[in-house]
């Protein structure tokens, strides 16, 4: 017995494609501007075995991973520090509140002047964007630690550091991972945006620009579809990781950053 939800989902997607296809064929949309749904699907399938496009995908994933790793290495320690030192946190909070809303893409023109290579430009901007979800969720996780657990350890004569290592960090870990998951989606969007805005040697964004300059709308849309699929895959993987690693932890919602 197949889950009716799955059936409906498949029908929904198929229906949307069929409507788009019919609109194109009936002449409601100019197929020279907006290609047929079937064309886009065929192009997207073709891209999966297109060596040039796969190189662009791996370039995007490269800067994405680099930026995400640097962001985690920066934001987790800072988050732990701020989360366990409330006075420092109170002092730094106005700065965070001011820096967080700055659109990371607005940094691209500035960083492009300062940084030596365009890979560094992209990684810098990704790090900036990906830091916030990790930082905010790490701080939140440390605040959320059960005071009874902390007091229990203190009562047994453990010091601050021991409490941090044995209670605070393990119980904050699920929040950190949620922050990483949110950061991963943000980082992917920023990576592609940076490629679109700053250009460079390769990447999905660069591929889309090239396709655009040749008026190949079908390839542009097909590449955007792949960007979406990669985003879904990354998110699904991290959701799975959260489920496997932190089965015991109910509150997986996290703090949207």
């Amino acid at each position: 017995m197949i889950d009716p939800r799955v059936v409906r989902g498949v029908v929904g997607v198929a229906g949307l494609l069929a409507v788009a296809e019919a609109a194109g064929r009936a002449g409601l949309m100019d197929t020279r501007i907006m290609p047929l749904a079937s064309t886009v699907v065929a192009r997207a399938a073709g891209l999966a075995v297109d060596g040039e496009f796969l190189q662009d995908v791996s370039a995007t994933l490269g800067v994405w991973a680099a930026g995400l790793v640097v962001a985690i290495l920066l934001a987790v320690p800072v988050g732990v520090l701020l989360g366990s030192l409330p006075r420092v946190e109170a002092a730094v909070r106005p700065l965070i509140e001011f820096l967080r809303p700055i659109p990371s893409v607005a940094l691209i023109p500035l960083v492009a002047l300062i940084a030596a290579s365009d890979a560094r430009v992209k990684v810098t901007v990704i790090v900036y964007a990906a830091c916030w979800p990790v930082l905010v969720n790490t701080m939140y996780g440390l605040h959320d630690v059960d005071p009874v657990a902390k007091d229990t350890l203190r009562a047994f004569g453990f010091g601050r550091l021991a409490v941090l290592l044995r209670v605070a960090l393990p119980s904050a870990a699920p929040f950190v991972l949620t922050g990483v998951r949110l950061a991963a989606s943000v980082a992917l969007v920023v990576a592609v945006s940076a490629e679109l805005l700053a250009g460079g040697a390769g990447g999905i964004g660069v591929y889309i620009i090239k396709a655009g300059s040749g008026y190949r709308v079908d390839l542009m849309v097909a590449a955007a579809v792949w960007a979406g699929l990669i985003g879904l895959a990354v998110n699904a993987l991290l959701v799975r990781a959260e489920r496997v690693l932190f089965r015991w932890h109910a509150a997986r919602a996290g703090v949207a950053a």
Partner: peptide, 9 residues
């Protein structure tokens, strides 16, 4: 999941 900037072109 589709990054909106990819649709700008």
């Amino acid at each position: 999941a589709i990054p909106p900037p990819t649709l700008i072109p």
